[in-house]
Every structure is written in structure tokens, then in C-alpha cells.
Design a protein around this nucleic acid. Structure first.
Lengths: 338, 338
DNA sequence: TTGTATGCGTTATCAC
DNA sequence: GTGATAACGCATACAA
């Protein structure tokens, strides 16, 4: 073996003076090999810098101990946290996580499904359930189990997530209980994003129940940045009558809105109340601190991993695991001035 | 083929009435196949839901078009952004990115190196250069090219990053020019993190040049959270004499420090000045806005990808690419009160 | 243009 | 306890 090409089982076997089978056994079931030979083999492995080739191994053993996750974007604190615990749980079970991102594009998500399937993923984690049937059909046809997280789906399949709609409705009810009537909302982009759509629907549910017509509840959809939140806030505050509260689809939008409110000289919550969703670290950093919905991402990541593993190992498993959410009241929600 | 096992090249070939070689060609060099057969083959591919097996493909072709990146943690806006552009650039060149995280642990990083090497990564992206030689030796021995990013290293190898030390020194000079003499610092954890260590060294460089002894420059190391920043701020503010400025190793720590300053009733910058590092979105959200160092992460990710690809394809390539940084003065830095 | 045959690095099934 | 050897799914040199 020359210095610039990777050593193979064969190289190790030759160096240790044993057969490839023995080397393989040393790596996979060490106790089936006598200590003396094992030592010699491990020695050779070390000095040669041998690492088993995943492709060959997968080919021969027909399993990869790999699971994939396709998330909309890596550039987002929310998925990061949940994913982190997903992967920690996975590695406790000896599985490796492969992460891919779809950029909120169903076509791209489908490509990533195929890429991960091709890489031999034993199972997949998907975010939400807003996607073409074709995509999930593909996974079913290949017999690749998958779990959808971050939201609860209604149909067949396995889900672990929050009831985004109910949580948003509950927060809106709280807002209304403070006496607000002129509600407004800065929603996340609902296109192909059921979390954003559900949160919007939840707010509308509560508003309607309180006798507020959809027409009297202005909603602006905004992408996931401070700037977009600020821009939407500007538009909302320019309306007549001016909303007394702005409910935001996530904390990032809410903080952007707060920023604009401050620039406009509006006091919170006296002049305008603002609510968020997710309770990321950010929510406790702004002044006043943000009233929002706590979403236990780590717990969800863990539950998703466990569900997926049960699915892969064909153990009995629940189909819908609901992770509870909670309203956390801080400083940005108060009674309206009038 | 039954419904619950994945189709192979052979299944497709049989379904389309051609040989496996032809199917393979349809997928890899379509123009070598006549349109009629190609159509038939693609048809079969579609209906069977065939996706090439990565393992088999890698084994047979001896290349993977995959590059790996090992980052300290996914739960961090800074790496997320740079990584995003790294991967975008990569995919423009038809390469797939595999991401692994080391949790700031060199041993874990080494494991991930082996995992990625075993998965056939054509090249690797590493963060910074504080790691055991053994780790880089391993990569060299296997002939896997790698680029170290986020900092400029001094030794052999390929780097793309910032001069963290010089940038920190420049900011400290600016601070001193404002008239500050009682400097202090909340540094990131410097253990196995050359970015944090360099930023600390830079501040000390400038302080010493201004006649401030190390002993008169209290430094607290803190992990990467708001809470740790706030805690360190509390300790610093309890000292006598109280520092007139707190330079932070990153924006997150700075924002944590700001939060504590506010709780202590300290006005910024009148009572205490605070500086950050990185210029993440957060810096423009807090009040007053944070004075910090802008670090063009996207540009760096892109440069790193290009460098790695040149390395992999054995094109000529620079060894040290320096990405410029800039001080952005906002509201948290001003002259000391006294 | 298409088919045949071989080998990639590993595991697993046999013998020994 | 260890060694041959036959798969695994695919790409490719070579033949047709």
C-alpha cells in the first residue's frame, strides 16, 4: 500500500498475517477472536490508519445504521436545537445522523430523500407534513420508515410534534382575555409550511370565536428574518385602525417587530402588545422580554428519535406523539391602552 | 422485486429489457444511449422508484462526490451561516455535503474524521487549527485533502479565515482610543479553540501596547450562551476598580453581558461599554445596537468550498486565504464616564 | 449503440 | 479460532 491510497481489509490482513475474515471479525465481534491475534490485528489497523469503507460494509451487510433528517434550513435556531437532541438520542442507539436541507423546496426535499435513500438511510426524519404525496409514496415504496416532526399530522403515518393550531389559539384567547379586539398577525410563510399555516389558523379560530371577523384581522406573511418582521410591523402600524396587538408566527419575527415598534416610538405593551412563538433564547434577551409559546424542542427531538428507532426495529410504536406546549407570559403582552 | 425491498439496477434492466450496463449508462452518461432505449429505461426507473445505491456506486467508481465538514456544534448561528454558503457552493460543483459535529471535543472530532473518511469523503472542512497532530496526520496518510477555516493557521496546510488576533487587537485599540484604561474581557472558552484564544491574545496585544499590564486586564472565559455571558458580566462588574469596558469574544456573550448590565442598572455606553465579535443578526436587535467586528461568514464558506474543490481536483491553490474583517461601530461603545 | 464480464471492500457462510 | 469464498449493487473496459 502506498502512502496516498487508503488501506483496505486486505492490507491489514497481510500486515497482521491473518485472513480478511479474521480482521473483519476483530472489528465487528472481537470476542470471537483469540486475544493474541486480535492484538496483532489491532496493531496493524492502528499503524496503517485503517478505517472500514462504509460502501463496502453497507453492501455486504445490507445495513448502514444511518438515519437521515431533512430540514428546511440549517440557518435556524429552532431546528438546530431539536436536531441536536435527535442526534444525541440516535447516537445512544449506535446510529449515525445524516443531515440534509431542503431550503423549503419540496422538489429539493424529494432529491434529498433519494440521496439519503441511496446512501442507505434506515429511516428518515421529515419536518411537518406539507409535501406532495409523491414524496411520501416514494419512501413507502422503498420501505423506508419515516417520522414527521414539529407538527401533528392528521392522516396515516407517524408523527411527533406540537399542536401548533391549538397552541396559537390558546395564546390568542389569552390576548383577547386582556381586552384586545384589534388583533393582527405577522405569520411565517404558510406556503408548504404547515406549522406556519396552523399557527395562523389557530389565531383565526380564537378570533372568530370572539366575534372578530377574518376581515378585521390583518395578517401579513413574512420570511424568517428580523428584517421581514420589522417590515411587516411597519405596514401593520400604518393601518387604520391601528392594531393593539401583533401576534407573530415565531420569535424571530416578533423580535423584528419589536425593533420596529421601538423605532416608531411605540411603547410595549402600552401602545402595542407583541407575542412570539417557540421561546428561543432570544425571547429573554429583548426588552421587555417576549411573551411567547414554549415549545420543548429537545424533548421532541428525543421522542422523534425513539419513534424512528422503534419503527426501524419493527417494535410496536405510537403513531401520534403530542408534545405539550405552554404559554410563557413575559413583558410584551398587556391590556390595550383604550 | 417485492414491494418492500429496494429495486436494484438488475430489476430496472429486467423491466426495461436491457442490460444493467445500459441502465447504468442512462444514469451516468445519457448521451451514450439512444433516445428510444433511454426512454424505456427511464420509464422503468420511475415506476420502480429506483435510486442508485450509493455504496455500490462508490465501490465501483471509486469516488463519491461527497465532502464532509466537522463543526464544533450545529447549535450556533455562526457556523450555520458559513456552512450554508459552503454547501451552496459545493452543490454548484455537483458535490454533496455531509455534516458532522464534534461538540468541541478533539476525540469526537477524530471519530467523525474516520466516519467521514469511511463514507468516502473526497475532502474535509475543519474549523480552526487547535487539534492534536495525530488527527491531521490521519487525513494526510489517507490522502484526504482538508481545509481549515474560521481562522488563519501558521503552519503547513490550507486555510481560509480571518485574522482573529489582529481584528481583536484593532477593536481594542479603538476602545483604548476612546480613552478607556480599565479594560476587561469575557472570552470564549480557549481550550481547543484557537479562535477564542486568538481574540483574547489580540486584546492583550493592544492593551500591553498601551501600557496596560495583563494583571490589570481581567479575563473570564465563558461558554457560548447568553447565561454564561451574563454571569461573567456580573463577576466583572463586582470588581474594584470596576472595568469601564467589557470586550466579549462573540456577540452572544456580549448580548448576555448587556442583559446583565441592564439588570444592574448600568447605562451603555455611559456606565460601561461593551463590544462583541462576529456581527450576527442579533447585534442589530439589541438596544443600544452592539459595536462589534463584522466577519463575512458567507464569503468565507464560499472561499473554503472553492479551495477544497481545487485541492480535490488537484488544481493549483493558495494555502492561506485571508478574509477581511471590519469594525462596525454602533451604540455600545463610547468614552468612559470619568 | 448495447451486452458481457470483472472487480471495488466488506460481511457472512461454510469448511477446516 | 481461523481461512476460503461467495455474495452485495454498481461502473466500466472490452467485445460484439
Amino acid at each position: 500500500m502506498n502512502d496516498h491510497s487508503k488501506p483496505t481489509l486486505d492490507d491489514v490482513a497481510r500486515a497482521a498475517g491473518v485472513s480478511t475474515a479474521t480482521v473483519s471479525r476483530c472489528l465487528n465481534s472481537p470476542d470471537q477472536v483469540i486475544a493474541a491475534t486480535r492484538l496483532r490485528v489491532m496493531q496493524a489497523v492502528e499503524t496503517l490508519g485503517y478505517t472500514p469503507d462504509f460502501g463496502g460494509r453497507a453492501l455486504a451487510s445490507r445495513r448502514t445504521n444511518t438515519v437521515g433528517a431533512i430540514i428546511p434550513t440549517m440557518d435556524n435556531a429552532i431546528f438546530a436545537r431539536g436536531l441536536q437532541s435527535f442526534q444525541e438520542t440516535l447516537s445512544r442507539f449506535g446510529k449515525t445522523l445524516l443531515v440534509a436541507s431542503s431550503n423549503y423546496d419540496p422538489a429539493r426535499e424529494r432529491e434529498q430523500m433519494e440521496a439519503l435513500a441511496g446512501r442507505g438511510a434506515d429511516g428518515l426524519l421529515l419536518i411537518g407534513s406539507a409535501r406532495p404525496d409523491m414524496s411520501t409514496d416514494y419512501l413507502r415504496r422503498r420501505g423506508i420508515p419515516f417520522v414527521r416532526a414539529w407538527n401533528l399530522g392528521s392522516g396515516d403515518g407517524h408523527f411527533v410534534g406540537f399542536d401548533n393550531r391549538a397552541a396559537a389559539a390558546m395564546l390568542a384567547e389569552r390576548v383577547i382575555a386582556y381586552g384586545h379586539r384589534r388583533l393582527s398577525m405577522i405569520a411565517g410563510v404558510t406556503q408548504m409550511n404547515d406549522r406556519a399555516a396552523d399557527r395562523m389558523a389557530g389565531v383565526r379560530d380564537a378570533a372568530r370565536a370572539a366575534g372578530i371577523a377574518d376581515a378585521d384581522l390583518p395578517v401579513i406573511e413574512a420570511a424568517y428574518t428580523f428584517e421581514d418582521g420589522a417590515r411587516a410591523m411597519g405596514e401593520l402600524m400604518a393601518r387604520t385602525p391601528r392594531p393593539s396587538v401583533v401576534m407573530c408566527g415565531n420569535d424571530v419575527l416578533a423580535v423584528g417587530a419589536m425593533q420596529r415598534a421601538r423605532e416608531l416610538g411605540l411603547a410595549m405593551p402600552a401602545d402595542v402588545s407583541i407575542t412570539g412563538f417557540d421561546d428561543i433564547d432570544l425571547a429573554r434577551v429583548v426588552t421587555p422580554e417576549l411573551t411567547t409559546v414554549r415549545v420543548p424542542h429537545r424533548r421532541m427531538g428525543e421522542a422523534a428519535a425513539e419513534m424512528l428507532i422503534r419503527l426501524i426495529t419493527k417494535q410496536p410504536v405510537e403513531t401520534h406523539v403530542k408534545i405539550p406546549t405552554a404559554i410563557v407570559e413575559r413583558g410584551t403582552l398587556g391590556p390595550p391602552r383604550d
